[in-house]
Lab assay of single mutants.
Amino acid sequence: HAATELTPEQAAALKPYDRIVITGRFNAIGDAVSAVSRRADEEGAASFYVVDTSEFGNSGNWRVVADVYKA
């Protein structure tokens, strides 16, 4: 099962156990969220919340930071 994305309210009520950072070329924010979901799932997380997204220069590469939560 894939890790689910939390709302800001849900994330605020929970304590993350880790923070992950992924970088890559994403065509849309949805693609980045899917990549975070896969990584969170690999780490055994039940859910995640994207904290920050930023573009690296003009290369089209993105850096996505997310907190991950157990259950």
Rank of each mutant, 00 (worst) to 15 (best):
A3N: 02
A2F: 14
V64L: 07
I29D: 04
N61D: 13
Q10A: 09
P8N: 08
N61G: 09
A13L: 14
G24W: 04
S34L: 15
A28M: 09
N61K: 10
A32T: 04
G44L: 03
T4G: 06
A40S: 03
A35N: 03
P16V: 03
P8E: 12
H1R: 11
I20M: 05
N27L: 12
E42N: 06
D67P: 00
T7G: 06
S54I: 15
N58M: 11
A35V: 06
A35E: 10
A46P: 05
D41C: 15
T7P: 04
W62F: 11
D41Q: 15
D31M: 07
R19K: 03
D41W: 15
A66M: 07
D67Y: 14
S34Q: 14
A32Q: 03
N58I: 12
I29A: 08
A66H: 01
E43I: 15
F56E: 13
D52G: 09
I20E: 00
R39N: 03
L6S: 01
D18W: 10
A12R: 12
H1M: 08
L14H: 08
A2R: 14
V68K: 02
K15Q: 12
K70F: 12
F26I: 02
Y69G: 00
T4L: 13
A71F: 12
A45I: 04
D31H: 05
Q10P: 02
V21M: 07
V36Y: 00
S59K: 10
G24V: 07
R63L: 12
A13I: 13
R39L: 12
V50E: 02
E5L: 12
R38N: 06
R63D: 02
V36F: 00
W62M: 09
V68M: 13
D67K: 03
Y17V: 03
R25M: 11
A40H: 01
E55P: 11
G24R: 01
S59R: 07
W62A: 02
A40G: 03
N27K: 12
E42S: 09
A28P: 04
Q10L: 08
D18E: 08
K15L: 10
V33L: 14
D18L: 15
V50L: 10
F26R: 00
A3D: 02
P8M: 13
I29H: 09
V50Y: 01
G30S: 14
A45Y: 15
A46N: 12
V33K: 13
R63V: 13
Y49L: 08
D31P: 03
N58P: 12
A66W: 04
T23K: 06
N58T: 13
S54E: 14
R25G: 04
E43K: 11
A12G: 08
A32S: 03
R25I: 11
R63P: 01
R38T: 07
D52V: 12
T23F: 14
P8K: 15
E9N: 08
V50W: 05
K70H: 13
L14I: 07
G30C: 12
D31W: 12
A12K: 12
V68Q: 00
E42Y: 10
E43Q: 12
F26D: 00
P16L: 02
E5F: 06
A32P: 02
L14C: 12
I22K: 00
G30N: 10
G30Y: 10
V65N: 01
A2G: 14
Y49S: 04
S54F: 14
N27T: 12
A32N: 01
I20W: 08
R19S: 04
I29M: 12
Y69E: 00
H1Q: 10
L6N: 03
A46L: 09
K15Y: 08
E9K: 09
D41V: 15
N27G: 11
Y69N: 00
P16C: 07
E5A: 10
Y69S: 01
G44R: 04
L14S: 09
S37T: 07
V36I: 12
